[in-house]
């Protein structure tokens, strides 16, 4: 599936997950993300365990919210004393809201993890504007490597546990931190050597040229001057706006000039097939329908809150069906 389509899939799913606290929709989205994740995962890709993350994130989030947010009608017990943050009634509603937050976080992580498994770092890089090739490459390495860091931490923790190491306090993290840091940096060395061996940075200057720097400087100066004119000079609004626009144009020109220093070619071009267009339309329609239509009053809302008294969340069948559109990557693979 094309990289852009994977981005649409993951950011659409994340946007919906972030905009609701309805646990039924969140569970549905989580299941969909996990199904797609298992479908795209190759045997050599490990990734992080979503189930393990959920088993940690949901209870911890629930407990933390319950002891720090003292709002809601159903009081379970009261923490006595004058402890800042913690003292006060612990409510069922706060517990539920915390658990829902943990569920939302797990769903976002599942979507992100699927994206990082499905899209290779080099594909991430292609999406970065050419002027920001180095920053884009750094980000793509970071995003691809983030799940590996968590997997590595688990390996280090297991290895240290075999040696009898137990984490009891902050100091006990040092034997976990150092192998994690050193191992990760060793891997970065290998990665950079592979990049150099494949010719990265061999054909063109990485540095911004003096002309581009001049344009950047002029653009920033005009922008600042325009803003100041808008604010300080009586009747200077239009002149200030003109200077701001001119500054923006110069900044854009600097980016264009820098982009000329960073040509990149692709051995295999990604081609959109008819099925990809259909999937893109399905996902766009789902996101629009679920996120925007409720605001216009033509579709039921995703909103749910357990406060002030816990009630059962509603479930609209049509929204549920619409969310199943996020299974679309399975069609592409089939």
């Amino acid at each position: 599936m094309p990289t852009l389509l994977w981005f649409l899939w993951s950011f659409g799913l994340m946007a919906i997950a972030l905009s609701t606290r309805n646990p039924l929709y969140l569970v549905l989205l989580l299941l969909v993300a996990c199904i797609v994740r298992e479908a795209v995962r190759t045997p050599s890709q490990r990734g992080i365990s979503i189930l393990r993350f959920a088993l940690i994130a949901i209870p911890l989030s629930a407990i933390f919210n319950a002891i720090s947010v003292h709002f809601g009608d159903t009081v379970l017990f009261v923490v006595p004393g004058d402890l800042p943050v913690f003292s006060g009634p612990v409510t069922l509603e706060a517990l539920a809201y915390g658990a829902i937050n943990g569920l939302m976080l797990t769903t976002v992580l599942a979507a992100f993890s699927t994206l990082s498994l499905a899209v290779a770092p080099r594909e991430w890089m292609r999406l970065a504007p050419r002027a920001y090739q180095s920053v884009g490459l750094t980000m793509s390495i970071a995003m691809g490597f983030a799940p590996q860091v968590m997997a590595r931490l688990r390996e280090v923790r297991d290895a240290q546990a075999i040696r009898g190491h137990r984490v009891r306090g902050l100091r006990d993290w040092l034997p976990l931190w150092m192998p994690l840091l050193t191992g990760s940096l060793e891997q970065s060395m290998q990665m950079s050597e592979a990049m150099v061996a494949r010719g990265y940075g061999a054909t063109h200057s990485q540095a911004t040229s003096a002309r581009a720097q001049g344009l950047l400087l002029a653009g920033l100066a005009l922008g600042l001057l325009g803003w100041v004119m808008q604010l300080l000079v009586v009747n200077g609004w239009w002149l200030g706006t003109g200077l701001l626009v001119a500054g923006g144009v110069l900044l854009f020109a600097a980016m264009r000039l820098s982009a000329g220093n960073a040509p990149h070619t692709a051995y295999r071009q990604q081609r959109w097939q008819a099925r990809d267009v259909v999937i893109a339309l399905m996902l766009t329609a789902t996101c629009t329908g679920v996120l925007i239509a409720p605001a216009l009053g033509i579709a039921p809302s995703l909103t749910y809150t357990p406060y002030p008294a816990l009630t059962a969340p509603s479930f609209d069948v049509w929204i549920g069906v619409a969310l199943l559109a996020f299974l679309a990557p399975l069609l592409r693979r089939g």
Binding site: V135, M139, A146, S188, S192, M195, Q206, A212
Partner: peptide
């Protein structure tokens, strides 16, 4: 503008890989 300037003067393959990994750890 800051990113463009910073990457222009500071980045080579080793630094990109190192920074990518450190950012991943921080994430």
């Amino acid at each position: 503008a800051l990113m463009l300037e910073a990457q222009g003067r500071a980045m080579n393959a080793k630094l990109i890989a190192l920074l990518g990994v450190l950012i991943a750890i921080n994430s």
